[in-house]
């Protein structure tokens, strides 16, 4: 289930932009921890738990490598653990490495969810009004990909059937591939001009043409957008006041649990968990409806 599918594309786009911005913006371990946990959970709910767990198997070693290599490049910090080739390896550098690896992985998982939610049509709907030409260009490119792929296979087969396709030597193979590619270019370009003429015949580029969109901006979208923007504003304000300040060098600062900091953690949690909340709500509604039947 994807609760985000019920939203107008603006809502998820703003939401992911906000969480990614907040994540990349801070080095505060609690904020990053919250973001990481929520990113993985959101990704799990949207793309499937099994897939996400499997990707974690790849992500964790990368995180460990990032964390362990940081001390090799950064010799800041006062707590020296040991010396490696005469260079000090400090506790602070290791902790900073862990912190940054968490940041990078959470951004990666946010992008994964973003990618699963924002399909091509949503992207086009989003930017269709701002940049209609670019949006159209993007959607046409996406459309041409499978077409060209199919055409490539057809040409390949035809060349093989004609007996022109040579697979004797490495060089011959490359030459054949390039001939196929050349034919593909000619075919693609020629047929593309036909597409363009057809577009023109249907009035593309005339003034006053509107584009159809299946998405409607409802009250729920407005509420979600308001929620996202308000929480981001609160987080930015608190960060501006210094609640999100954190430093690793020369010594790791202690984590602050004052009023302002607590408010910051809470708003970050609310923002990051909003996606999970929507998914859970949608799933419960779905189950309830099913149980009524």
């Amino acid at each position: 289930m994807k609760a985000f599918d019920n939203f107008h594309p603006v809502a998820p786009f703003l939401y992911f932009a906000a969480v990614i911005f907040v994540t990349m913006f801070t080095t505060h371990p609690i904020l990053l921890g919250v973001s990481f946990a929520c990113a993985v959970f959101t990704c799990g709910m949207i793309t499937g738990a099994k897939k996400t767990l499997k990707s974690l198997l790849y992500a964790l070693p990368v995180m460990i490598v990032i964390a362990l290599t940081n001390p090799l490049f950064s010799h800041n910090g006062v707590t020296i653990l040991f010396y490696l080739n005469g260079n000090p390896v400090t506790k602070e550098a290791v902790l900073y490495g862990v912190d940054i690896s968490v940041m990078i992985t959470s951004v990666f998982y946010w992008f994964k969810s973003y990618h699963a939610v924002m399909s091509g049509d949503k992207f086009v709907c989003l930017f269709g009004s701002v940049a209609p030409k670019l949006a159209l260009l993007l959607s046409m490119t996406l459309g041409f990909l499978p077409k060209l792929k199919r055409k490539y296979r057809e040409i390949d087969d035809a060349q093989k059937a004609l007996g022109i396709y040579s697979r004797k030597g490495y060089l011959d193979k490359i030459r054949s591939k390039i001939r196929v590619l050349g034919i593909l270019v000619t075919c693609g370009l020629e047929s593309s001009v036909e597409t363009a003429d057809s577009m023109r015949a249907r009035g593309y580029g005339l003034k006053g043409r509107t584009s159809y969109s299946v998405f409607r901006f409802t009250f729920a979208d407005a509420a979600f957008v308001f929620f996202t923007v308000a929480l981001t504003a609160v987080i930015c304000f608190l960060a501006y006041k210094g609640a999100a300040d954190f430093r690793f060098y020369p010594t790791v600062k202690e984590i602050n649990f004052g009023l302002e900091s607590a408010a910051l953690y809470l708003s970050a949690l609310l923002l990051s968990a909003a996606g999970i909340f929507c998914e859970i709500k949608e799933n419960t509604v779905w189950r309830l409806l099913k149980s009524k039947i």
């Binding site: 159209l136 260009l137 046409m140 490119t141 041409f144 990909l145 270019v185 363009a196 023109r200």
Partner: peptide, 19 residues
């Protein structure tokens, strides 16, 4: 002032590079 034809040709070239 690029028209429909320019647009489509660019789409094909982009699709080719992605492919």
């Amino acid at each position: 002032r690029s028209g429909a034809r320019e647009l489509v040709v660019l789409a094909v070239m982009t699709a080719l590079s992605v492919l």
